[in-house]
Amino acid sequence: MSQKITNYPGHEITHEDQKERRYLDIEYKFVPRYSWAAGVAISRFLDELKEGRIIARKCNQCERILVPPRMYCEQCYRPTDQWVQIKDTGTVNTFSISHVGTDARRLKTPILVAVVDLDGASPGMGILHNLGEVEPSNIRIGMKVQAVWKQPSERQGAITDIRYFKPLEA
């Protein structure tokens, strides 16, 4: 009973305790390696990226063009029907300027991140990617952007075959 309890249990270890190593912590590193199967849809998607193209899947029932592509429509719950080549241009749906890296350490140069709704896919079908060749203060929601690809020889069938999206000249 909250107000009747005077003593809440627990012993805090402060930052200083840790720095001074006042407790007998145990350190352990764990580096499991994985090889993930890309599956039917994403294998094809990665192959197309290697060729400098973006491919989607269409569901003939709801008529949505889905990207990233999937072999089933999660709304109609049936297999999707056909491959559709879409454009490498799109619109910034939302964006962020990230000053932290994966492990929350601060970055010297921020990463520009955006959800880009791709042209040729159904409205709102975005993918996560980076922005480049743009001042952070100039990024706007609704801005038209285009993929900047790696050289064909450098592509490896990965999402990073697109280096980033840059503003499309008006």
Partner: peptide
């Protein structure tokens, strides 16, 4: 930092190679 574990909730093929952090989805 505990943040680090959140890296592994993103799609391992299409999102993680971009250097994701959990903060991205919140800020977006």
């Amino acid at each position: 930092h505990p943040q680090y574990a959140f890296w592994s909730i993103f799609d391992q093929i299409l999102e993680r190679p971009l250097g994701t952090t959990l903060l991205w989805i919140f800020s977006l």
